[in-house]
Write a protein that binds this DNA or RNA. Structure first.
Lengths: 233, 233
DNA sequence: CTTTGTGAACGGATTCACAGCT
DNA sequence: AGCTGTGAATCCGTTCACAAAG
């Protein structure tokens, strides 16, 4: 590293990192209600975890609480936003403007939360050139040029599964180092790139597992030919 | 339970359950390529895990492999589909037909994978009565009647955060016992109901954490007034 | 007396490494 | 010889329980 700007880079466990955004949301809610401080107990209720976990998680950020009192809401919001990198905006590119990509492009919540959608790309000539939410859809071949000039940090893949890996590779070549993949397929990235995935079919199948375990009666039988027969052996 | 159809109800760890849909997808891919058998090594590559984990996971389903050979692809697909409850269809209701709900309702992939969208509900009188993908949007007050007559097992919440808990409560009252929540808020459900959540802003914030850690340079600075100041103390 | 911060105990998930079967 | 299946070891995350601080 070039200079020792941080004395101690705290190592925050992955499981904790995954909960920080939920804490932040709860804290913003508490701040909106005008609460000056909040206890781990109360924060746990708001975020759906338990108090011990909250305290342990917050302790990784530093000793920001006051014993006998709780945590200063505004201060904790500040520290957590800083830790999450939310003090700057991260520009986003969405690749693939089918059903889902279109909905994501129209969703105002991203910009509002510090993730402005700076570019849209697609491979389909019928989609390229159309305008969505005030932004023109560009051809995916322009990705590298666009990413460079727009300082794009995060890529969202909303393409069909077959295109996902190539799109990811192109994004990475264009300097994108965080990817959120909605395509129902495995995408592999080098270790210096972060990847998260959201797969709706997977979520439904997980629910299906427990639903079935419960022996729940709702649901219609599939026609027999829709199921796969075991092999002869 | 009515009869002892399963001698031993195997306890499959949650972490394993979460991976089963990925294995299934990889197996279907292998089956499509005409492979009769697959090794744990190869399945691991296709699903993005490692061979030891694959073997341990599959061992919870039963000893379906053949030493020296691998796993019979078709047979494993069959067993896994059964375990996941995918031999019947699970009817789905989508609540909230804004941007995201609309996109989900138009998405054909659900029906295709055994989760037909059987009903759409919303509270907004401007949306109620419109038709999406051949399905009329009904008023949420009709939820109980609809869920009963359509044998609906799974509810998808795509409403604004403020409405999510009430919608979940109504779904549960109507007999829905699996819920997928897209609203950016905590929803609590009784223990006999399964809940999974997908939160886009949370995913982006997690990516932001690692992006920032990396000291990545992409991204524009927010105006100073958009950040929160620490308290005077 | 209240609530944090944290070592220590616990439990679950992952990985290792090899015995067992084909 | 090749690959699965699984105890044993290890790693990581959660919970407990209490000393420290206000």
């Amino acid at each position: 590293m070039a200079e020792g700007s941080k004395r101690h880079v705290r190592k925050i466990p992955e499981a904790t990192v995954n909960r920080l955004p939920i804490y932040l949301r709860s804290l913003l809610e508490a701040a909106g209600d005008g609460l000056p401080t909040i206890s781990s107990e109360r924060l746990a209720e708001l975020s759906g975890f338990n108090a011990a976990k909250v305290r342990k998680d917050l302790s990784y950020l530093g000793s920001y609480g006051t014993r006998g009192v709780g945590y200063d809401v505004e201060y904790l919001v500040f520290q957590m936003s800083r830790e999450l990198g939310l003090t700057k905006e991260w520009h986003v590119v969405i690749a693939g403007l089918g059903n889902l990509g279109h909905a994501l492009a129209n969703y105002g919540g991203f910009t509002e939360r510090g993730f402005p959608v700076a570019a849209l790309v697609d491979a389909d000539p019928k989609v390229v050139g159309t305008e969505i939410n005030g932004l023109e859809v560009r051809h995916i071949d322009e990705l590298e040029a666009i990413a460079g000039s727009h300082q794009i940090a995060i890529g969202i893949i909303a393409t069909p599964a077959a295109a996902a890996q190539e799109v990811a590779d192109r994004m990475i070549a264009a300097g994108v180092s965080s990817i959120l993949n909605f395509a129902p397929t495995i995408v592999t990235v080098p270790p210096e790139v972060s990847l998260r995935k959201v797969d709706l079919a997977v979520e439904l199948q997980i629910l299906s597992f427990y639903q079935q375990r419960r022996g729940a009666e709702a649901g219609a039988a599939l026609p027999p030919e829709a199921t796969v027969a075991p092999p002869a052996g």
